[in-house]
Write a protein that binds this DNA or RNA. Structure first.
Lengths: 211, 211, 211, 211
DNA sequence: CATGAATGAGGTTTCATTCAT
DNA sequence: GATGAATGAAACCTCATTCAT
């Protein structure tokens, strides 16, 4: 956003790829892969079309690189989810979902990534796989670990883990998807949503609930 | 499915628009709006490209017509959801979700419609509005009516309707989205999923559960 | 050349591919494969660029089709060279070379084909093979048959066929190549050249020459 | 070929233009003028694209310089062909053609130069002129001088010099062209070819041949 | 001298749209 | 109504050339 005072040719080359990916992400998120014009990406990045090809061999490669770059922080954060399991399982769950909400719902990038995947997954199965292996899979794996911990602890009732993990995480997808589709026109009370989600978790899982 | 006994020529004339929409839906669902070629639509419909323009003025118009046509049965079914509220609220909920699952998860069209909306909604805000007004809105409205009925009946505990409706319906979106994104490669136990979903509903809503 | 009075869209489609190949040949012969612009081909054919793609999938394919089409008459004429071997071998040779000169030297297409092969053969090895198999090979094969016939008849002295065939046919390549490279600026006396060539043949091959 | 012992940096400076021409020649010979990329030339020369422009103002100029440089040794050798005319004319011819074969057939550069001329001559008429004036013309001039010498000497029969010179030299073009077009896939017996060529010369020219 | 990032004109290719039949 | 050949704008991509370092 801050104007670089040096002339274009003088800009430091190290920053180029990143600037391009930022611009590309905006355009791809806005228009989808097929409808995005490299001219627009270049214009947004303040360069010309040809320059993109110095760093990425094709539009497809740019898309993949963009997705991977934008997914990286999400992946890293998911990977570093609660490893320590001690204390009440419900507290761990609460912390767990706090992070998931931050990265998949509140962060615009997380939301757009999910949308892009739904939209373009057919043409980029590798990205779908990667997203599953490094985001969805680990997130559900962590959730399952917490559930098992809670059950072993006598805090949670025993449930079919495979299925319940998907059930319990679905409000996250709902919130992300709602935001992306209906935007600001039909706002969602995200804070209330989060609380209601956790309430549901508790009622669904806890063995004994304080009435 | 039922063979039309009339001569192809004759049959065709009236059925054309519908056949085109069927073909268009498949192609749009497969490739998205921008990447779909009218050539492919025409080929799939067994006609030539020019013929499409006899019925639809542009690719955009075809897309809108396709979406509307495919959304119509879903809308109608949603509209005819349980109007009568009598008997246990939980039974009504169960019936309600049966229909929702049938049309939004099990029916490929319902799944694709949701995906298309996520993918192309930005370029077709009218469709997004329509989908909200005639599918999502009514479905949630019905859900809210049942919840209110259950609360009035003393069967459900009082909750924040607005938020909980979204929470409680999210697994439907999850199932639909999962299917569309991960396809058959990572199958979901849909029957178990449905049961777990209803179980969650019960535990979340019911005032007292028979242990 | 004769203006077709019908408007472009009305031209008969059957003629299109041929018209395109004619135009393409001129441009390819003029500029070579890489430097030829499809715009120019289209302009020469009186159509637009897109139309070319209705008939040929790519510039390469157009080039190959052009070469094959232009080579066809040459190939057919070579194939129909003297099959009957009777009478003086020298007379047969004379007739043989008359045809070869007509198609490889006097005919502009024959000359250009040879040039194109030298120029683009590296990028289109299939064409080179085809040209060898259907033009050069047969022409030399026929020449060899006549030589053998002349030797058996006692008219020609025995020579190493493989090598002499190439030697004896070289003036044809020289004439063709000269014309193509130096054009009209340094004309060649083609009639005298042909006679001198046959004279050389006679002196090289005949057992006894009438002094 | 001889290793330059000086440090690369130092050696480079003076040798640059030559190295560039060497690299350019390989690329131009491989792909032709239009399809050759300066990137590839630079890579082959071990420098960067920009450096080429320190020495040559444009791709065209580089091509011309390359051709001239590569043609220089050929021109020089042609120029120094037999000036002394004494002894049997046939011996002189033999020596003459030995040199011509060495430089136009056996030397890859000679072959490629001829090919390049056929391929790009249209775009570079100056080169064509130069090649004619300094290679083809002198070579034929020398040949004519030997023929005249042989005729005057009573060794050769009188012939139409202009035409016969072309005829008699054509096997050289054939050999060169064959090699360039069919490469190693359809090898030519060059030694036998040379002998057969000289045999043809003798039979065509000599007044009386020892039967 | 040398670099190599950047440019931008221009080429190939695609495809929604038109229109004469 | 239906066809399908033709169009032409626009997209992706290439690469000769420039220029600040």
């Amino acid at each position: 956003m801050i104007e670089d005072q040096r002339r274009p040719r003088q800009r430091r080359k190290e920053a180029r790829p990143g600037e391009i990916l930022d611009a590309a992400f905006e355009e791809f998120a806005l228009s989808g892969f097929a409808a995005t014009k490299l001219d627009d990406v270049a214009a947004r990045a303040g360069i010309t079309k040809g320059t993109i090809y110095l760093y990425y061999a094709s539009k497809e490669e740019l898309f993949v690189a963009t997705f991977k770059e934008m997914a990286r922080p999400v992946m890293e954060n998911i990977a570093s989810l609660t490893e320590r399991l001690n204390g009440p399982a419900m507290d761990i769950l609460r912390a767990h979902f706090r992070i998931v909400y931050d990265h998949m719902v509140l962060d615009r990038r997380g939301r757009e990534l999910q949308r892009m995947l739904a939209a373009e997954g057919g043409r980029f199965p590798d990205l779908t796989e990667r997203w599953h292996d490094e985001v969805i899979g680990p997130a559900i794996g962590q959730l399952r670990a917490v559930l098992r911990y809670g059950v072993e602890r006598g805090e949670f009732r025993p449930v079919d883990m495979d299925v319940f993990c998907h059930i319990l995480i679905s409000p996250v997808l709902m919130a992300s998807n709602w935001y992306v589709v209906f935007g600001d026109r039909r706002p969602l009370d995200l804070a209330g949503f989060y609380e209601a989600h956790l309430d549901t978790l508790g009622r669904t899982l806890l063995v004994s609930r304080g009435t």
